[in-house]
């Protein structure tokens, strides 16, 4: 005759039973369930982001015509400046490819910029990520670099049908190759825990001992293409102090990142040119 489980022990039996059942579940089921639950709630986030855009547009409609004329005039001036920059970039590109041919160098990576709006943010002590409203359908590849006007934002960690998840540069699990301005030697950048009411910051490691920084003249830490994801020269943050490791071989520091990283509305995904059109 089967013995009944005593009342007091039932919760523990339930917990153990369910935990064991969960561990024994095939990975295919878990993967399917995860994708299903994610795609099920994605339209809700997209709709909420869309509503926010509408409310912002309505807010802009409150501006007077004079303000719009002034904004249009300023934009026209900016556009002309950018047109000139584009011509300069074009001639620099031609020169670069000429040099690559002469020196038989591998071509520098080129990217297509895909602009995407941020639909959701998860920035806790456990993880730092955001969701953007472009995904596999828009040709976003996993592992691509994500940037904004102020520099590096992060890296695409997951790609779904209409959305992608970005691991932020502030995340403690984020690592990339970096370099200081006017110094091509690579260093390692890693995100750090962000404390409340302070600017986000990270950690820079493996800095050669001859690099000298002072609080009055902080140096820009920028991306390096050695990591294979980011192009050279995108700002990560500013470092004003380095401390030498006990063995004296390397230095480390804490770059201050831009506070805008915590409230971005729009970012650009750098899709390597060869991957464009993969869809």
């Amino acid at each position: 005759m089967a013995r009944k489980i005593p009342h007091a022990a039932r919760p523990i039996v339930y917990l153990l039973g369910i935990s064991v059942a969960w561990l024994l579940l095939p990975v295919v089921f878990k993967s399917f369930a995860r994708t299903g639950f994610y795609e099920f709630q994605a339209p809700v986030w997209l709709t909420a982001a869309g509503l926010k855009n509408v409310s912002q547009s309505l807010g802009l409609m409150a501006h007077s015509k004079e303000e719009l004329y002034e904004a249009g005039r300023d934009l026209a001036r900016l556009n002309s400046a950018y047109e000139l920059k584009l011509q300069e970039i074009d001639s620099l590109r031609k020169e670069l490819s000429r040099m690559e041919k002469i020196l038989v160098l591998p071509p520098a990576p080129r990217f297509d910029y895909k602009i995407a709006r941020v639909v959701r943010r998860d920035q806790s002590s456990w993880w730092q990520q955001m969701v953007i409203q472009k995904g596999r359908w828009h040709g976003i590849p996993e592992g691509a670099a994500v940037v904004y006007s102020g520099g590096v934002v992060g890296r695409v960690s997951e790609v779904h049908t209409y959305t992608s998840v970005i691991e932020l540069v502030t995340s403690p699990n984020f690592r990339m190759a970096a370099q200081f301005d006017n110094d091509e030697r690579p260093v390692t950048y890693q995100g750090a825990v962000n404390l409340p009411f302070t600017n986000p910051r990270g950690r820079v490691m493996n800095v050669p001992p001859d690099v000298v920084l002072t609080a009055s003249a902080p140096r820009r830490l920028a991306s390096s293409r050695l990591g294979g994801v980011f192009p050279d020269g995108l700002t990560i943050g500013w470092v004003n102090r380095l401390t030498t490791s006990p063995d004296g071989l390397f230095q480390s520091g804490q770059p201050r990142l831009n506070k805008e990283l915590l409230s971005l509305r729009e970012v650009a995904v750098l899709v390597p040119i060869k991957a464009v059109g993969d869809r």
Binding site: Y14, W22, F37
Partner: peptide, 25 residues
């Protein structure tokens, strides 16, 4: 909850069940 977070799928299942089991007890 688990589906959108960068944790192994099932972490919240175990945590919620653990908490729920304690509450039941």
């Amino acid at each position: 909850v688990d589906a959108t977070l960068p944790v192994p799928f099932g972490v919240h299942v175990i945590l919620y069940f653990g908490t729920f089991a304690f509450l039941l007890k």
